[in-house]
Simulated assay, not measured.
Amino acid sequence: MASPSTNTIAFDPALWPSGTLWQPRASLSACVRASMVRNTLGADHTDAQRVNHFPASPMCSLSWWFSGSSQCLNSPPAVAAEGVFGETMPMPGRWVLCGPQTRPVSTWCPGPVHSMMVLVMPDALHALTGLQVSDLIDQFFDASTILPPDWLPMLQQVQDAPDDAQRLQALEEFLEPRWQRYRPSQPLVQQRYSDWVAHLALRAAVSAPGRSLRQLERRIKQWSGLPLRELRVMGRSEEAFLMTAALATQTTAKLDWAQIAVDTGYSDQSHLIRTTRRITGFTPDALGKGIQQQESFWAYRLWM
């Protein structure tokens, strides 16, 4: 059964609780990265507070809305953070499958919402469904029309379950027997992007004849939808984010971005800033202030 973990970091007390981050059972650790539950029922948020910011990510996601709804924003994240939305696009269905995102995404909820987003490893999704992950990149799909037909009863069962714990249990009991035939014999101890990328590269090297760099990269892109170089960029970006979060809990002094850049594999501070802006839509400093003070950065707080 999945287990929840919650924040221990102190933020602006006026912020709504970020939600719950559920970790999968051990046997599904190479299939499901985590599940994020957000419930703002009862909150009286402004339009700007109902924005949701998400970074670029190599993960796929499967989402349910138990109450309320969400729309995609075409505005850049920094603009959306100021409450300027521009054009919005409704989600394509009640249940949504999202492919890997090569750029940050901002969404908006017209009102209070209770939702769940399950982050699925792209190679696991490919193995379980036969979907070509490269066809899903930067797109949202109606999950009921793109997933195999035998997934549909599970989607409905999760929707109808009386609470979040039973929803996660229904999902895991569906995935468990299907994943048995595909899961690696030596599952990951860590589930950071960089660990998964290294594991993926090792699998590519030993999975089939032909070990040239081009053949390895072709296998990795088939499984994940993204080239190895891009996956490593996202892994390094997550490492910098988690290090920054850890340092922020230990000191009130101004963070040394140059040292953080060196410690996480960037060539210099400018390299860190450029990559952070590309992955999140914000500079490191703006991202840090948003996480501490703005409702719309709840997903980042939850991940910390």
Rank of each mutant, 00 (worst) to 15 (best):
V133P: 01
A286N: 11
M117R: 12
P17D: 04
A81I: 00
C98E: 15
A240H: 05
G130R: 08
L175M: 02
C109T: 14
A201N: 08
T20C: 08
V84N: 13
D285E: 15
T283S: 15
I220N: 03
A299V: 10
G265N: 06
G19M: 09
M91V: 03
Q49C: 01
H53S: 01
Q292E: 14
Q222M: 07
R94Y: 00
L147Q: 07
H271R: 11
R178Y: 00
P92L: 07
Q180K: 10
P104D: 05
R33M: 07
A253K: 14
R278D: 13
E87H: 09
S75Q: 10
Q250H: 08
M116L: 15
S70H: 00
K221D: 02
S57E: 02
I273F: 10
P209S: 15
G99Q: 04
V118P: 01
G235F: 09
V189Q: 11
V32G: 03
A14W: 00
A48D: 10
S67H: 14
Q23L: 15
G225L: 04
A10F: 03
L147W: 02
P284K: 01
A80F: 03
R236I: 07
W22E: 06
P110I: 10
Q71V: 03
L302P: 02
V197L: 05
I146V: 15
P77C: 07
D135V: 00
Q132G: 10
R274K: 13
R232I: 11
A299H: 12
P209Q: 15
L147R: 08
P187H: 03
T283F: 07
L272N: 05
C31H: 01
P187L: 06
G265E: 07
T20G: 02
P177R: 03
A246P: 00
A205C: 14
G86V: 05
A34H: 11
T8A: 09
N74Y: 04
G83W: 08
L152T: 11
Q157L: 02
M234W: 13
C31T: 14
M304I: 04
A253I: 06
M116H: 02
G290W: 02
V51N: 10
R211V: 11
R236E: 08
P122F: 06
T145G: 09
A48N: 09
L168A: 04
S212D: 13
A124L: 07
L242I: 03
P55C: 01
L255D: 08
A78Q: 12
W151Y: 12
T252E: 15
V113R: 14
E239H: 14
A198W: 00
F54Q: 10
E173D: 15
E87M: 06
F297L: 05
W64D: 06
A204R: 06
P122K: 04
L62G: 05
R236A: 12
V233E: 07
A286S: 12
W179S: 02
R94T: 12
S144G: 15
F66R: 14
S70T: 11
P122Q: 06
A30G: 12
M1L: 04
